[in-house]
C-alpha cells in the first residue's frame, strides 16, 4: 500500500470523527509511519485476521489484543494506543510473529509503542511493569549482571507492591537461590558507556 492510500484512509477516518464530534479520538496521520519506522515492522500488511490475538498468551489480560493495537495504529489512534495496558502486557514470546500470515512481529511493535509512550510522557497503564523493567536495567548498569536481591528490594519499594509473593521470595532465599552479594563484572566502564549513549527520553 502506498502512502497515498494511507493518507486517504486517515482522511476518511477524520471525516467520520468530525461527524461524531465530542466522542471521537483525534487522528494522527503521522502515527503509523512513525511506529513503522521505530519498530521496523510493516504494519500496513495487517488485514486484521486476529490470529495473533487468538494465540497471544496475555491477550486475555489486555484491554486491546495485539491485532486491535495494530489496527489502532493503522487508524492513527495515538492516545488510545499509548495509554493502553496492552503494550505493557506483551511478554515478547514471539508467538504472534511465528504465526502471522503477513510476517508482522507484533511484539516488536509493542516495544516501540512502550518506548514512544515513555518518550512522550504518557503515564504507563501498567506502572509496576515499567518499574520492574527499570530496576532490572539499573541492576545491569550497576553490576553488569542482574542482582536479584537489590533489584527486588528496589522494585518493592518503588512499585508500592510490598506484599505480593513475599513468602515465595523467602522460600527462594532459604533455598539459597537468591545470592546476597552481587557479581560485578570487570568491564563496567564499557557497560556504563553503553548506558550513557542511550537516546534522550529512554533514561
Amino acid at each position: 500500500m502506498t502512502t497515498g492510500a494511507t493518507a486517504s484512509l486517515s482522511s476518511a477516518v477524520r471525516t467520520s470523527a468530525a461527524s461524531t464530534a465530542g466522542n471521537a479520538q483525534r487522528v494522527d496521520p503521522s502515527f503509523l509511519p512513525t511506529v513503522e519506522a521505530l519498530s521496523h515492522e510493516n504494519i500496513r500488511r495487517c488485514y486484521y485476521c486476529l490470529k495473533c490475538t487468538a494465540g497471544c498468551p496475555t491477550a486475555y489480560a489486555m484491554d486491546y489484543g495485539p491485532a486491535h493495537v495494530l489496527k489502532l495504529v493503522q487508524l492513527g489512534q495515538k492516545d488510545k494506543v499509548l495509554q493502553s495496558k496492552a503494550i505493557w502486557m506483551c511478554v515478547g514470546c514471539e508467538t504472534c510473529w511465528t504465526r502471522c500470515p503477513n510476517g508482522i512481529a507484533a511484539g516488536h511493535v509493542m516495544d516501540a509503542l512502550k518506548q514512544m509512550a515513555l518518550r512522550e510522557g504518557y503515564a504507563p497503564a501498567e506502572r509496576r511493569v515499567l518499574v520492574l523493567h527499570r530496576q532490572f536495567l539499573t541492576s545491569i548498569r550497576l553490576f553488569g549482571r542482574v542482582h536479584e536481591l537489590s533489584m527486588l528490594a528496589l522494585y518493592k519499594l518503588l512499585s508500592g507492591d510490598l506484599f505480593t509473593d513475599l513468602d515465595l521470595g523467602a522460600r527462594m532465599f532459604l533455598r539459597g537461590k537468591i545470592p546476597i552479594l552481587p557479581e560485578r563484572i570487570k568491564g563496567m566502564s564499557k557497560i556504563q558507556q553503553l548506558f550513557a549513549k542511550r537516546p534522550r527520553g529512554q533514561e
Binding site: 486476529l50 495473533c52 487468538a54 494465540g55 489484543g65
Partner: peptide, 22 residues
Amino acid sequence: ARLYEEDGKVIAWGADTLTGKP
C-alpha cells in the same frame, strides 16, 4: 491460531472480532 487435542476434544483458539478478545 491453534488447534490441539485434549481429553478427546479438539480445542480451537480463535478471537472474537467485536471485543478483540481470545
